[in-house]
């Protein structure tokens, strides 16, 4: 038996909007730790890891570890039927081939339940080793989204370079080139407006902008984004989900042949 009650149901709606275009089908894993997901895109270039910790739910009952295969597009269709202020409860019985999403309006005058068919998904769970990164950049998530969108109108790839001068995003295309440099800036009114650069050593990597733009669909989940870079590792683009966990996107770099 599984019953997870999330008062801030909009979080789950936002999570689905953030990942449904990157991943078609995925297993949601439920354990004492929380509600999690790990999935790759169909071309095995990017990986998304989601964790919503059990403590973040108002009620969290998960009698035994359960993996539920869902089509994310269908799940998104169902969650779009929940109001932004609704409380969302996810329910499943042991051995059932369906999951139920229950939506309660804040004043309890409307209760809806949507039952969705589960699917068997052969997914490969990958071990992600703990790593020391050469550079970690924290910046406003809206700023990062803006840069990725702007650069993708010029080119297909972005070179992200971190030096002591700051973090530089560069692209080139048929019509020309573009460079955006963000310097460390901690003299701001609100902490989420800061750009903080922790650099162990300079690093420069190239990535497909199509994926970066897809990751920025998580922008509504967090005011800040953390970008971790190392020359021999995929980039990590992390959006923290307040008091609940995170959504992390890993993207393999492009390399010179």
């Amino acid at each position: 038996m599984l019953e997870l009650r999330l008062v801030q149901g909009s979080l789950l709606k936002k999570v689905l909007e953030a990942i449904k275009d990157l991943v078609n089908d995925a297993n949601f894993d439920c354990s004492a730790t929380g509600f999690s997901l790990q999935a790759m895109d169909s071309s095995h270039v990017a990986l998304v890891a989601l964790l919503l910790r059990s403590e973040g739910f108002e009620h969290y009952r998960c009698d035994r570890n359960l993996s539920m295969g869902m089509n994310l597009n269908n799940m998104s269709k169902m969650l779009k039927c929940a109001g932004n202020d609704d409380i969302i409860t996810i329910k499943a019985d042991d051995g059932s081939d369906t999951v139920t999403f229950m939506f309660e309006s804040p004043n309890q005058d409307k209760i809806a339940d949507f039952e969705m068919k589960l699917m068997d998904i052969d997914s490969e769970h990958l071990g992600i080793p703990e790593a020391e990164y050469q550079a970690i950049v924290r910046m406003p998530s809206s700023e990062f989204a803006r840069i990725c969108k702007d650069l993708s109108s010029i080119g297909d790839t972005v070179v992200i370079s971190v030096t002591k001068e700051g973090v530089k995003f560069s692209t080139r295309g048929d019509i020309g080139t573009a460079n955006v440099v963000c310097r460390q800036n901690t003299t701001v009114d609100k902490p989420e407006e800061a750009t903080v650069i922790e650099m162990q050593e300079p690093v420069s990597l190239t990535f497909a902008l199509r994926y970066m733009n897809s990751f920025t669909k998580a922008t509504p989940l967090s005011g800040t984004v953390t970008i971790s870079l190392s020359s021999d590792l995929p980039i990590v683009v992390e959006y923290k989900i307040a008091e609940m966990g995170y959504i992390r996107f890993y993207l393999a770099p492009k390399i010179e042949d």
Binding site: V45, H125, P129, Y250, A252, K254, E256
Partner: peptide, 14 residues
Amino acid sequence: MQRQKSILSFFQKS
């Protein structure tokens, strides 16, 4: 010419 690496070349199946 640039080549796109796969995520599977960095992370092992567990």
